[in-house]
Write a protein that binds this DNA or RNA. Sequence first.
DNA 1: CTGAAAGCGCTTACAG
DNA 2: CTGAAAGCGCTTACAG
Lengths: 352, 352
Amino acid sequence: MSKLRPPQRRPITLTDIARGCGVSRATVSLVLRESPLVRDETRERVKAELRRQNYIYNRAAANLRRQTSSTIALVLNDLANPFFAEFASGVDDHLTQAGYVTLLGQSNESLERERRLTHSLLEHAPAALILSPVEAPEELALLEQLSSQLPVLLFNREPAEVTQRSWDLLQFDNYRGAYLATRHLLAQGHRQLAFYGGYRHQRPHRERLAGFTQALQEAGLSFDPRLCIEFQPRRTLASEHVQQLFAHGLQPTGAVCYNDIVALGLIGGLKSVGRQPGVDFALTGFDDIYEAGICTPALSTVQTRPRECGRQAAIMILERLANPGSDPACHVSPVEFTIRDSSPPPTESNHS
Amino acid sequence: MSKLRPPQRRPITLTDIARGCGVSRATVSLVLRESPLVRDETRERVKAELRRQNYIYNRAAANLRRQTSSTIALVLNDLANPFFAEFASGVDDHLTQAGYVTLLGQSNESLERERRLTHSLLEHAPAALILSPVEAPEELALLEQLSSQLPVLLFNREPAEVTQRSWDLLQFDNYRGAYLATRHLLAQGHRQLAFYGGYRHQRPHRERLAGFTQALQEAGLSFDPRLCIEFQPRRTLASEHVQQLFAHGLQPTGAVCYNDIVALGLIGGLKSVGRQPGVDFALTGFDDIYEAGICTPALSTVQTRPRECGRQAAIMILERLANPGSDPACHVSPVEFTIRDSSPPPTESNHS
DNA sequence: CTGAAAGCGCTTACAG
DNA sequence: CTGAAAGCGCTTACAG
């Protein structure tokens, strides 16, 4: 068999071009950077030689010399999740347009992977990091370390309690999302509602809970803390905590769930306690992941427009690079509520 | 307002570490690279200093000096498409594991964007390029140029006619996929089937068409070239070409579509000619994109497992880097056919 | 307007 | 076992 690939030839450098048209490397560099210092005739000769030799600029070398960077690192939980994929697509589109290249990484919800990954990405000297952090208590320490090394934009989640942020933050209008979801259920006539999933020490949880209680209050209802069921927002845990909804002799007829994953877990779990989701129990989600639209019953949920959010993230991080000294930014992305008719009115249950 | 961010301090370099513990830069470098040349006591002193100063290795500088690369470029049509997102996820997982970082880019089905993007990515000196090329005749020239600069792995599509490939190729078992789809429709009793969408000059099209005709032949049927309708595989075009199915007085009762997008377009278009997809017209897709499972009627289609495919792509490209001189590889990813009950038996139509 | 020289952060023969 | 020196491909004052 013949070897088709040409021997991996040494890449063409500035020196080759300079030699090729009898000028110095400095002059070629000036031509590349469109400097007005070079005479027209010389510029054309150099440009012709660049084309002739099929020159490729070595931006890594240039970045090293100039102490600049043309890459931005993007670390997400899981690219196969359409929510993050759309976000990544928006980020990358905008960064490309601005002349940056995206360094990609997936943490798969593992703090250890996130740690290794960010470390490995930092070795490539990105100008900044866009990170959707893992939910773990130790996350905070990692974040503080990272944000001391380069500008960091946090997307979607902020771990634990922070007083003095040193990173930018892009999150959804959690308050309004939960408020809208709660109003939806209240409009169906529900009087006894739970807030299901997540931990109160997380900022998004607190904000969603605030929207929930506000809607209750406006409806003349008071918030019963026993109906705020806290657990890590995972699908299996959401199934397993279903009994707590009906503990203390309480009979909620619906739940505002922390997010879609939790709602989907709850849909599964309700059956085990003899409830039929969408028939005698109403619930809402948050995120509008694909599954929310296609599960049975379909899930009414809060829509987050991840792609636009990605563009926004890119805009924010470029802003930060242009303006390194300014105060940490916190952008709240708007949300909408999508009704999918999975929220039945309350049934005077035969469970009581 | 106080400026919280500490002044963007100069990154720590080898020189700082060397100075910090009274050795030369060379020694620090040797420690970093786990060389056995360094005395244990010295190694520990250096390691402590590395930790103390929170040193971050500058891999770009090292790559420059060593003439190596630790990045691989990945260019896809659209990351928001779950098919590509899952593929990207598989690629990135495996590359990360192997110590590489993924440089990401989206061509959005535009040759011009693909050209600009690959050029910009090459400036970052990736070790190789994984590319899902745009469908355009001029693509071939770009590809030949790219593959003369670095190892290229083509995913999913190969443009036009090529005799001597200089890139690796990863594609699906197009022949078998189309064969299975056709057999499915034949088993329902269809005798007059069309092959719908794509261009015959594309390799995947030819292979799928071959699977189609093979299945027909095995069923004792002959292929009617008038029922091979060619057009660029886009949703709108698939809607618009629907009349051609019934031209020449032909009355096909089903169609094997080039891919899911085409099938979805056809589902839309059939209504305009008084046919009801899934009722009096049967069709199959190729790819198993999300929409195929949730559209109405649900689409029976060929499943491609994009995530596993992504891992395979990463494996192939690392193989290529380890073995630059070997002949171009061509890997065919297996497929399965997913029946979703959208393929009615033929109705003796009242159209004839 | 052009060239010689120094330097970005690293690595790697080569002396000692 | 450790250090001085050269060099990866680029940029940028500084002379001329």
